[in-house]
Every structure is written in structure tokens, then in C-alpha cells.
Amino acid sequence: MNVSAPLKASDFKSDLKPVWCPGCGDYHVLLSLTKALADLERKPEEVAVISGIGCSSRIPAYLKCYGFHGVHGRSLPLGTGLKVARPDMTVIVAGGDGDGFSIGGNHFLHACRRNIDLTYIVMDNRVYGMTKGQPSPTTEPDWDSALSPGGTGLNPFHPLVIALASGANFVARAFSGDIRGTTKLISDAVNHPGFSFIQILSPCVTFRPEQKEWKSAIHAPPVEATDDPARAARRIMTDDGFNVGVLYRGDRRPYKIGDGVEHKTVADLEQEFQI
């Protein structure tokens, strides 16, 4: 690789063949992510992509960046630890709706609240695909499945509203099939300070074939992104769920504890124990 030449999207892609089904929306997310990283002019070694468990959580290995494919639901804590310890790294946490909103739901709330400078991408297909078709927190209440015959009867979880209420600093919705739009949103999210959350509607053509119709339902938001959380919440709660774009941009200061400077030595710390 010529280091002086600008990197292309393909320079961020590994040779590993994804386990995803043909037609899965996640292929497009992978493509958008590599394009965004090229646009951001990051080097692959400066980026870490962290995930949990599920179809979409396989994404780190398909990239040439540093990656961590952890346990189910704990991608945000992994990414948080990495970013706090290594603020020089660009940290992108990625996964699915079951991983992020069910088993990892508590971490989602607190990651939004903590406002660490990282980007969280959830590929939302409203189903557990890897375990072959069970309802997730974002599944419609009447969706019939073997595990919940006749549907769950439960209101779907609304990740964007919850992200907003919990303090996320950047909230956006994307559609995997809109590669240009998704690329731009990822790039904007990474550039925005603090915790950025993107819900990417990414169809599961195997267990939710009706999601193939999403491409015709998608539309751009009718108005510009707002920095007023109350306004953003109202829009998100009253829209049809298919408008894509930046919905909220906040200016909360990203989380920071220490300054990384050694003000004292360990020998200094020991003084307090001396008699």
C-alpha cells in the first residue's frame, strides 16, 4: 500500500467472506462504513470496531481495522473502556437490535448518558437472525414466530427516543440501502464530539422478507436536524419511523476524567500510609 495515496473504501475491507445471507442489509452497512472511513481519512490501524453477538456483530472481522467481537450485549462497555484508555483511537461500536436493546439495554442507556466520544451503529432488522427468527425489542407486537406465537403483544422499544432521553449527543436514522446517505451519516457521527447513535434500518431478507419493502418507505426528514432535544423528541415520536437523516445534534461536552498527565508518582501516593 502506498502510504501517501489516499485510502479507498476497499482498503478497509478484509478478505474474509461474511456469514450473512445473500441480500442481507448488513452488506450495505459494511460498504458504507468502509466508505465513511475512507472519507474520514483515518488509517485502518487508528480505528477499532467493537461488537457483541449476532449477525451484524460479525462486522469487525470483515474490516481491516482493529476489532473486538465480544460477548452478547457488552459491546458498549468494551468500546467505552477502550476509548477512555486510548482516546487517540477512533472507536466505532456496532451490532444489532437484540444485542443492543435487549441484553445490552442497560449499557445503551448509560453509554448515551456518559457521552463518551464514540459512535454506536445499530443494524436494526427487528429480529434475532442468528438464532433463526425470534422477536427482538424493536419487533412489531403482532409478528408471529415460534417463540412468541401470535406475536409478543408488546410495544416496540423506540431506540432513538431513548437515546435522546438518555443524553446521546448525536441521533440519526439511516437505511442500509441508501449507501450515500448512510456513508455521510457515519462520517458525521464520527466527527461529532460525544456519543453518536445511528439506527440503521437493515432488512433481514431471510426471516423478515417483508422488510424488502422498506426501500420504498424511506424518505428524507422534512426539516433540518435540531439541537433542541424537546423538538427532536416530538419529531421522533410522531414520525412514521422511515425518515432518515440527522435528527438531533447536541453540544454536550464529551466525557473526560483525567488529563492523562502524570501529576504524581506511585511513590508520592505511598506517602499517606507512612506513620
Binding site: P77, L78, G81, L109, H110, D259, E262
Partner: peptide, 29 residues
């Protein structure tokens, strides 16, 4: 830790705290 140039993060639960330290250590710290 702050005094010596490090960090301590209060986590939301122990599932998080263990994963935070795995993430930080993966980062070489």
C-alpha cells in the same frame, strides 16, 4: 489513577465493569 495519568470509570453494573477493563486492556493499558 487520575493523579498518575490513568483513569477510573464508574460502570453501570459489573457486566459493564469487566468489559470496560477488557476493552482498555485490549487497548494496551
Amino acid at each position: 489513577l487520575t493523579a498518575i495519568g490513568g483513569n477510573l470509570v464508574q460502570a453501570e453494573d459489573e457486566l459493564s465493569s469487566i468489559n470496560m477493563i477488557i476493552g482498555a486492556s485490549y487497548g494496551g493499558i
